[in-house]
Amino acid sequence: MKKQSSFWLAIMASLILSACSTSVERLDAQQQIDLSGAWNDTDSQLVAREMIEDSLSRAWISKFVKSEGKDPAVIVGRVKNLSHEHINTNTFIANMERELINSGEVQFVASSANRQEIRDERADQDLNASEATRKEMGQEYGADFMMQGQINTIIDVDGSTQVRFYQVNLELISIKDNRKVWIGEKKIKKLVKNSKLRG
């Protein structure tokens, strides 16, 4: 009887210890995992890729190349988070920048924050670098278009079930004359069912 109770005690202890231990598993960054139903890296990558593909397949790009004889230079501006979640729009912007650069179809200009840092460096070079290696002021490549947008959500809740609807709107605006040359929209709808019971 005593032996039997010791056995069960050992089983219980090992179960409790296994529940307390931390486990780490490396995952493929492309793997789709949804835990809470909130906006995640998969949404960010998916939306950025699809929207940039859409924007680059439209007529504005060929028209620009034909009229100007060069690839358009694009800058990504602000993407406003108007959603119900604290979304880090910087990762979404970075995803879009990557898709734009890797497409090879557009020139890409650094963001205003990056530019300022580079200008500071040029100003420093002006004072400290040798004439042969010094980079001049006033040689920046001006962007032709700016991409701006916003992320919106509509949440419908009924008890422990939620429908989360995300709508990402992006637009490409000509810096020269404020014309909107492309408007893109991507929608994601998620049904999230939370358990009514927990451990």
Partner: peptide, 20 residues
């Protein structure tokens, strides 16, 4: 302020849920 706005939207969802 953008994050403050997010909290207000979440509060709205929370209140709708509680008002059921």
């Amino acid at each position: 302020i953008d994050d403050a706005r997010v909290e207000m939207l979440q509060a709205d969802v929370a209140m709708k849920k509680l008002a059921e």
